[in-house]
């Protein structure tokens, strides 16, 4: 690990002051950042420990939910109001990592979680545009089973733009389907980003994961009033029953009117550089009967334009089957 300075702050204002230090980073639960530091992937000059600045409350009322950036994943998943009104979020959180990691990981930190691309995680691989901008992409010609099929940049293995990494978070997928917003603060003031605009596609700058600026602090995630409490499902397909990242995951929420879908929220995990929300699929579901045909059509739309690689071609079909399954389950009720 590189030598680094450690600074503990007691309030958001102090945190925003401290982050002005060159190459400083905020430290939440540390479940991702500290690992990356140990392996030489991240080397911040200073860690600003924000675990004691508050921002750790969950508030749910008729206007929706406000989740403090430092609410632990375990606390959020088990919050009675979240379980009652946003079971999709609770289930997504509980399908991620392990209890020990969820006890430490924070809401803001989870939003900032970096990819698990093998070639990003291991500094012994020379080519990774996300880790070393301009170095190329080893995944294109390598083992790309866990990689993106949607929204990636592929200009060849040697291009500085190429990146086929995925966002590994489960929480983010549910937040996308729930139409969440991220509240952000900096020394200059506050702003709000819809979750869909918080994470980025790699574009021509794959080293940049999100639209959060380096001097900004996530203070909260907000959710609109619950629409999908009665009909939602988080489905995670993975290589083992626990403690594995998703091959494909689906967050499905339905607002039902009898057997008809009034509105839908649908997002995929494990397929793109960001949680892959599909407005086309959501639109195709709205106003339609909750039938297998409707779900299949939504599934086709959700993965339209997918471009798979040597080892992840299965994701296209697996995603479709998983979408149909998650929507079917959601149409029958809430996940227990």
């Amino acid at each position: 690990m590189n030598p680094f300075a450690y600074q503990r702050v007691e309030a958001p204002d102090a945190a925003l002051q401290a982050i002005a230090i060159h190459n400083a980073k905020f430290l939440g639960g540390g479940t991702n950042l500290v690992d990356l530091m140990k392996d030489g992937v991240e080397s911040p000059s200073t860690l600003i420990d924000i675990n004691h600045i508050g921002l750790n409350k969950v508030l749910v009322n008729a206007n929706g939910a406000t989740i403090g950036a430092l609410v632990r994943n375990s606390d959020l998943a088990n919050d009675p109001a979240i379980v009652a009104h946003y079971p999709l979020l609770s289930h997504a959180l509980l399908s991620g990592a392990s209890p020990q990691l969820r006890n430490m990981a924070t809401t803001g930190g989870n939003l900032m979680q970096r990819t698990r691309c093998f070639y990003f995680m291991d500094t012994a691989f020379p080519a990774c545009n996300k880790r070393v901008p301009g170095s190329g992409c080893a995944a294109i010609q390598g083992f790309n089973r866990i990689h993106a099929i949607l929204g990636q940049t592929d200009e060849g293995a040697t291009s500085a733009h190429t990146c086929i990494a995925t966002n590994p978070s489960d929480m983010n997928v549910a937040l996308a389907a729930l139409d969440a917003k991220v509240e952000i603060q900096s020394a200059k003031g506050k702003r709000t980003l819809p979750l869909a605009d918080f994470h980025r596609l790699p574009g021509t700058t794959p080293e940049v994961d999100t639209n959060l600026h380096p001097d900004e602090l996530i203070v909260a995630v907000t959710l609109p009033p619950a629409k999908f409490a009665k009909n939602s499902w988080y489905l995670k397909v993975r290589d083992r029953q626990s403690y594995a990242f998703a091959l494909v995951s689906v967050a499905a929420g339905l607002e039902m009117d009898g057997d008809t879908i009034r509105s839908a929220g649908l997002a995929l995990g494990g397929v793109a550089h960001k949680p892959w929300r599909s407005p086309e699929a959501e639109h195709a579901l709205a106003g339609k009967p909750a039938t297998r045909e409707t779900f299949q059509r939504a599934a086709e739309l959700a993965v339209a334009g997918a471009k798979p690689y040597e080892h992840n071609a299965f994701k296209v079909e697996l995603a479709k089957q998983s979408i149909v399954r998650a929507l079917t389950q959601a149409s029958k009720g809430a996940q227990a």
């Binding site: 698990r116 093998f118 070639y119 995680m121 291991d122 691989f125 020379p126 010609q141 390598g142 083992f143």
Partner: peptide, 13 residues
């Protein structure tokens, strides 16, 4: 890895 010959998943995750 087919190019670098390195174990790509050499960790418990």
């Amino acid at each position: 890895d087919p190019v670098y010959g390195r174990t790509v998943n050499g960790n418990f995750a």
